[in-house]
Amino acid sequence: MEKKATRNAYGEALVKIGAANDKVVVLDADLANATMTLTFKKAYPERFFDCGIAEANMVDMAAGMSTMGLIPFCSTFAVFAGRSYDQIRNGVCYSRFNVKFGFSHAGVTVGEDGGSHQALEDLALMRVLPGMTVLVPSDANETIQCVEAAVKIEGPVYIRTCRLPTPVYDPQPFEVGKGVVLKDGKDAVLFTCGILKEQALLAADLLAAQGVDLAVINIHTIKPFDEALARTYAAKCKNVFTLEEHSVIGGLGDAVASAVIGHGVEKFHKIGVNDVFGQSGKALVLLEEYGFTGPQIAENIKSHL
């Protein structure tokens, strides 16, 4: 299966929407080579604005640009969502300005750069902001769908992408706020977001061999969250699991928990990073270290059934 990082797809998607809409502009903070906005810069140099290593200013400049009718996409590493948080909150979201955030290098799969550069809290930070749409594409094709959707939303949108190349699946029908059932099942349900989709599906295969019928649901929209789908599967499967390359605090797991509480759940368990920071290592080694490989996920789920 072809592999591609969602950050690369993000750069390509920007070119695509940039071709269709000349109001789209892209801002970066000296990371165009890494966030892959370089792809857009090459296609539309006059619509690319490097802000230097000054993320806070990038976000507020984008806020100002949006008031003049432009549609700015800001890009940097997801870990700098913290650094520019006041600007995202007060500069953009408080006014519901039409600014998009395509932040890359989320999660432990950043790899060797280590814990200082591995955002494990960005979804929590973004979810609590009123009016913010939070998207976590699970592969390259879904990244393009997320970017195309973001430009149609009037208001702030956060798109989380990753550095590690992961399998590119056939595109599924996409609607903001609607989960995607990747595999139906009746014994337990696993809600996953982002590039762990491959591992989630592998876990389902491994569990199937052991007689456990696991449903796998991809949540590309953390907010607004598909509460109806979550409740349907909670009622149907009773055993609910969540999987995210993010802290177990404040991300997908908590979104699912808030939705399904009181809806017939018997077992609930969040799989994520357990309230610690990341560390250096090869991306695949780190996946193993934090329990994110298919076999580990299968074992984890089995242990709770």
Binding site: N57, D60, A62, A63, G64, M65, Q87
Partner: peptide
């Protein structure tokens, strides 16, 4: 933040 937003408006 205001000066930064103003710079963004001027740039736009």
């Amino acid at each position: 933040q205001g000066i930064s937003m103003a710079a963004g408006m001027a740039l736009a």
